Simulated assay, not measured.
Amino acid sequence: MSQSSAVIGPADTVGTVVARMRALAAVLPERDGVAVFNRVYLAVTEEIDRRLGAGEFPDPRAAAALDVRFAERYLSAVGAAEADLGPPACWRPLFQLRHHPHVTPLQFALAGVNAHIGHDLALAVVDACRTLGCEPAELEDEFDHVGEILTALEERVREDLMPGPDLLQLADPLTHLLGAWSLERARDAAWAAARSLWALRHCPDIAGEFTERLDAAVGFAGRMLLTPLAR
């Protein structure tokens, strides 16, 4: 199975998203940088699916719509890269450096999180609002609930993928890179960007320029996170 066959077509449920990420995991080499992020994101999405089934979201329909629109952004980027169509700028560093021997798994994971939260989340909120016919404020509870899950998963990522203390002593640049990025700040910025894009929805030229600049800025941060560390 090719990567594109694993992600082709729009998703309609969180279960569909989970199935496509599992299919992608089955065809990607374990050390591939995209595979590293996919494993992290799959764990997040499985947890969201479990909590939806357990009735833990205030509005399950809104939470599912947000999660599906969010995941589609990532799956579309994978499909674009597979088809040589060029993914958004925020994703390009990860796809370009996915096989670099001197980039650590933790860097790959956080670069993917940076692209997905910093760029895709804001656009997914707008997509979900259009799907549901609501305002961003009506999705804030779901946004916050998903954010809590992401924060918990980020902590697990750092625990599972962080090199041991001996390596960190030898690789101070990694400590510096990771300390310069914050998921909480990225989430706050994504919510502000979503509200701005919604306010600009009747001004497509300005909204398009805003989105393009956001994409470029997040891509620049991703390239910094993926700075190769000499061994």
Score class of each variant (00 low, 15 high):
60 P>T: 08
203 C>H: 09
161 L>P: 12
172 D>Y: 03
139 L>S: 00
196 S>R: 11
214 L>N: 00
153 L>F: 12
24 L>K: 04
7 V>D: 09
144 D>G: 06
173 P>F: 01
215 D>A: 06
167 L>G: 09
219 G>D: 05
44 V>Q: 07
73 R>L: 09
122 A>C: 09
39 R>I: 15
116 H>V: 10
79 G>T: 09
203 C>D: 00
48 I>G: 07
100 H>D: 08
20 R>N: 06
4 S>F: 08
185 R>H: 02
227 T>Q: 12
44 V>Y: 12
95 F>T: 11
115 A>N: 08
178 L>P: 05
116 H>Y: 07
123 L>E: 01
85 L>W: 05
72 E>A: 13
73 R>P: 03
73 R>Q: 13
93 P>A: 03
94 L>S: 00
50 R>H: 12
156 R>P: 15
42 L>F: 13
121 L>I: 10
56 E>W: 03
11 A>N: 14
183 L>M: 07
123 L>G: 04
155 E>V: 15
33 G>P: 15
155 E>T: 15
76 S>E: 05
9 G>N: 00
103 V>K: 06
150 L>E: 04
45 T>I: 14
11 A>I: 12
193 A>H: 01
124 A>C: 08
66 L>K: 09
33 G>V: 15
117 I>Y: 09
66 L>T: 06
5 S>D: 07
24 L>M: 04
219 G>K: 10
3 Q>T: 14
140 E>D: 01
185 R>E: 14
203 C>M: 10
35 A>L: 06
23 A>T: 13
4 S>M: 10
68 V>G: 10
190 A>I: 06
182 S>C: 11
37 F>W: 11
17 V>D: 04
1 M>Q: 13
131 T>N: 03
85 L>I: 02
205 D>M: 13
148 E>N: 11
213 R>I: 15
114 N>E: 03
215 D>H: 03
40 V>N: 09
30 E>Y: 13
40 V>M: 11
11 A>S: 13
132 L>N: 06
28 L>C: 03
182 S>K: 10
9 G>K: 07
74 Y>K: 14
213 R>F: 11
93 P>N: 10
229 L>M: 10
117 I>T: 01
151 T>G: 00
222 G>L: 13
129 C>T: 03
124 A>P: 12
142 E>W: 04
91 W>L: 00
158 R>H: 01
52 L>K: 12
125 V>E: 09
98 R>P: 13
68 V>Q: 08
15 G>S: 05
61 R>H: 03
228 P>I: 10
180 A>K: 13
63 A>I: 09
90 C>R: 13
82 E>S: 11
17 V>T: 04
132 L>P: 02
149 I>F: 07
145 H>P: 12
170 L>R: 12
145 H>Q: 06
182 S>E: 07
108 F>K: 04
58 P>Y: 07
55 G>Q: 08
73 R>F: 09
110 L>W: 00
184 E>H: 02
208 G>K: 05
56 E>C: 06
56 E>N: 12
132 L>H: 02
94 L>Q: 06
115 A>E: 04
197 L>E: 03
12 D>K: 15
60 P>R: 01
230 A>F: 10
187 R>L: 15
49 D>E: 05
135 E>N: 01
25 A>V: 15
4 S>Q: 05
